[in-house]
Nucleic acid binder design. Structure first.
Length: 828
DNA sequence: AGCACGCCGACT
DNA sequence: GTCGGCGTGCTC
């Protein structure tokens, strides 16, 4: 045992790439341990930070400020999570404190805030602006300076200080309690002297008031029913008594109140479903055997479980998790978006009952906090959740599953840390000697290459599981509807073949899923005649159209060219912004099939807490014939009566200015295609396209993931894209465009110099700066610099160089910012 | 990210 | 001379 430290390092939730040293007053020496949250003075305010296991810097900054409070008895973060978050901060080039914030439930921070209150009424008339400030504070007493300055832009610190100096305003510094608290409820029980039936009878005779006696008998009755200590509200309702009566009995010493913690959990109320019997087909068994072997050996190993839709990946996860549980170890199951995968959750609950905790994207802060505390206390050995669950406080981890590992929602974008949960999962498994299973029908090329190169172990399941319940046994047939020669009348987005197919299903009483992929907000041009789209000659991405300069630009390398006027392929003067005329699918459906019941599923119709469930349940119960929606309809449940999947415009995804456009489109279309058909009724998939010869469709028709992957990998290799290169995007933003552009340029130069000094310069490419895809967002201009390093041995590690460049770059003007995105998921 | 300070031009 | 706008620098 080493002596308690008198100096500790503290990570603060700020975008600063450093930690800070604090003095520990004697009274806190025993309590302070790495991972504990502490309240510290920082500049003029107070912040909640976390003690991290770092040594103090050698020339100690002086004088040190003291820690003001230790907020945890048990450290909020385990040593393992401290190591993991440290690694993330290094890898994603961000503050350790920022990562730690992502690992803790939101709303726990204590911060000091300076708040404004009205002071004396002014004796002399204040100026116009001063009057406006006083009015605002009178209307919003206790407002923060920040809020006030948002409303009244002219309210400078100088003005506020003047008003405070004259006593017209009061400025108070207050510590804000955490937004989230442990919820407590008052329970009632007999005081110790009255716990025996005899004592209770005696007191009943002594009591005069009928209400008082009613309360005592009600408590006795509840006790007989097994509720020894009912809640206050429960007891009062039962006895039809008032709080005053209860208070009186407490004063008399007959009853006493006890506070109990309440766990806010959305799950407790739901019954545990029954597990369906599981039989494994040979491919499943083989995959499971390989995973089990690593689990039994307690060896770190990452598996890529590549299994077609319906091949039974979830059963493999469950069986692997059972092995891990048998060893007394714990597991994390990551799913892309929990609201869309109720079925997966149900299956895990069926097998593991209340060992499973679920983290939701739609949980309240209170529920989140309670679940986190329970996990931290070891109450649940299993957690299912979206990307943030990779940081769940489980100890003794044996397994991390990343289901649908190719999904982009695993990459966090806004606020920092901009981490990829899949990659963090692999590293966390490594730290724990655990097994990581990445599952997908259409793996990301990153994972696929890692599997081919032997870094991961590739497990393939090519066959669909035999029809158990509703699982389809045959792959659906895929057909293309060539839109090039189909005149769509009056903007009707449904070409005759698709309309006919829908009519047929409606007649037969079968169901239809229509995917209306509307994610095409990029200003990409498409020839309305032939479907051709201008591409960058160097980067294999579509060019975007910029009205002001009448230019086409590449967002990767900055290549720019004039608008060509006519289509290069067919010569028609029909280059139009993508996505025109595809917004009216619902109207068209109602016009064509007035009797059909259509269910819309998009961001607007799925607002509420359980809106997803409700919509999908209604469709599953057959309350609608057609489910129309954005990519949400591709995920979620299997619907046995769906025999047709239609894609209104399969090209939208292909034309996004992203080098992963083909990969993502294939993944989405494969997934939505998997919704069609079952054993007794084969499914059909119709894709409307103007590019029927596109390679994505060529491989899709044959359900040939491996073929497309080979072709895409060859291209990525040639162009130097991931997975053969590591990418980072530096974004420079601010209110003045010329200045943003200039800053981006000078940063690029600075970075190149740093590279030259520390890495010999070669191997590291910078592209740009180029205006971002959405050049102006919320009044700020944004420029991007793309940094590319080949991913082979001998290449310099990128992060230290970026860190070095950021740290040595001269300070930015106010309102201008540099942000980094390591392994970006796409351009934004 | 806050927060404060200090410099400058434009008003009373 | 002050006021108010804005750029600069620091936080253990």
């Amino acid at each position: 045992m080493t002596a308690p430290p008198d100096i500790v390092q503290v990570a603060l939730p700020l975008p600063l790439l450093q930690v800070f040293s604090y003095r520990v007053p004697p009274e806190w020496r025993e309590a302070v341990r790495p991972g504990c949250r502490v309240l510290v003075p920082f500049g003029r305010r107070h912040l909640t930070g976390v003690v991290v296991p770092e040594l103090p810097p050698d020339p100690l900054p002086s004088p040190l400020k003291p820690i003001l409070d230790v907020l945890d008895d048990t450290p909020a973060l385990t040593d393992e999570l401290l190591r993991l978050t440290r690694w993330m901060a290094d890898y994603y080039v961000c503050g350790w404190g920022e990562v730690i914030r992502a690992a803790l439930p939101p709303g726990l921070e204590i911060e000091s805030r300076r708040r404004l209150y009205p002071g004396h009424p002014p004796a002399e008339p204040p100026g116009e602006r001063a009057a406006a400030v006083l009015r605002f504070v009178a209307e919003h007493p206790g407002t923060t300076i920040r809020r006030l300055r948002q409303e009244l832009r002219f309210a400078s610190y100088a003005l506020l200080h003047r008003l405070v100096a004259r006593g017209w305003l009061q400025l108070e510094e207050s510590l804000e309690a955490p937004r989230v608290q442990i919820k407590k409820e008052q329970h009632v029980r007999f005081a110790p002297a009255y716990r025996t039936p005899a004592a209770q009878e005696a007191v009943l005779e002594k009591l005069r008031g009928a209400r008082q006696r009613a309360l005592v008998t009600a408590l006795q009755a509840l006790r007989l029913e097994g509720v020894a200590e009912p809640t206050r509200a429960e007891l009062l309702a039962r006895a039809d008594a008032s709080p005053a009566t209860l208070r009186r009995l407490v004063e008399l010493g007959v009853l006493e109140l006890v506070e109990k913690e309440v766990i806010r959990s959305p799950l407790e109320a739901e019954p545990v479903p029954k597990a369906a019997p599981v039989t494994f087909h040979p491919e499943q068994q083989a995959a499971l055997d390989r995973i089990t072997e690593a689990i039994e050996a307690r060896r770190f190993e990452t598996f890529l479980l590549h299994g077609v839709t319906g091949s039974g990946k979830t059963e493999v996860y469950i069986a692997a998790l059972k092995r891990v549980r048998a060893q007394g170890r714990t597991g994390i199951i990551l799913v892309p978006e929990i609201a869309l995968t109720p079925q997966t959750v149900r299956r895990f609950r069926a097998h593991f009952g209340d060992e499973v905790a679920v983290l939701h994207s739609r949980m309240s802060d209170g529920e989140r906090y309670d679940t986190w505390r329970q996990l931290r206390a070891g109450r649940y050995p299993i957690v299912i959740g979206p990307r943030s669950a990779v940081l769940a406080p489980l100890e003794n981890l044996g397994l991390i599953v990343v289901d649908e590992e190719h999904e982009r929602s695993y990459k966090q974008f806004d606020p920092a840390p901009r981490y990829h949960a899949r990659d963090v999962a692999v590293y966390r498994a490594y730290l724990n000697g655990a097994v990581c299973v990445l599952g997908s029908a259409t793996p990301s090329l990153e994972s696929y290459l890692n599997a081919r190169s032997g870094k991961y172990t590739l497990l393939e399941m090519r066959r669909r599981a035999p029809a158990v319940g509703h699982t389809p046994a045959r792959l659906p047939s895929v057909r293309l509807v060539d839109l090039r020669h189909t005149r769509l009348v009056n903007g009707n987005p449904l070409a005759p073949p698709l309309a006919r197919a829908i009519a047929q299903r409606l007649e037969r009483g079968e169901q239809v899923i229509l995917l209306q992929n509307r994610r095409g907000f990029a200003p990409v041009l498409e020839c309305a005649e032939c479907g051709w789209s201008p591409h960058c000659p160097h980067c294999s991405v579509t060019l975007t159209y910029h009205k002001v300069q009448h230019q086409l630009r590449c967002h990767y390398c900055g290549y720019a060219t004039r608008h060509p006027g006519t289509c290069r392929q067919c010569g028609a003067a029909a280059l139009e912004p993508l996505g025109i005329g595809t917004q009216r699918v619902e109207e068209a459906l109602r016009a064509l099939f007035p009797e059909a019941r259509v269910l819309r599923m998009d961001l607007d119709t799925t607002r509420g807490r359980r809106a997803h469930h409700r919509l999908l349940d209604r469709f599953a119960r057959g309350e609608a014939d057609i489910l129309l929606g954005t990519q949400m309809v591709a995920k979620g449940l299997d619907f046995p009566r769906v025999t047709l999947v239609g894609v209104v415009n399969a090209d939208t995804g292909l034309l996004l200015p992203d080098f992963r456009a083909d990969e993502h489109t294939f993944q989405l279309l494969m997934q939505v295609a998997g919704r069609a058909g079952r054993a007794d009724r084969p499914g059909e998939v119709l894709l409307q396209t103007r590019n029927p010869d596109h390679r994505v469709f060529r491989y899709l028709l044959r359900h040939d993931y491996a073929g497309l992957a080979r072709e895409l990998l060859a291209e990525r290799h040639q162009l130097g894209y991931p997975p053969y290169a590591r990418l980072a995007v530096l974004e420079c933003s601010g209110p003045d465009e010329a200045r943003v552009a200039e800053l981006a340029r000078s940063w690029t130069e600075h970075f190149q110099q740093v590279c030259h000094q520390h890495a010999g310069g070669h191997l590291i490419d910078t592209l740009g700066p180029t205006p971002a895809l959405h050049e102006r967002l919320k009044g700020r201009y944004r420029y991007h610099v793309l940094v590319k390093v080949p991913r082979r041995t001998g290449a310099p590690p990128l992060q230290p160089l970026l860190r070095q460049a950021l740290e040595t770059f001269p300070p930015l003007p106010r309102a201008y910012r540099l942000t980094l995105d390591i392994d970006p998921a796409g351009l934004s």
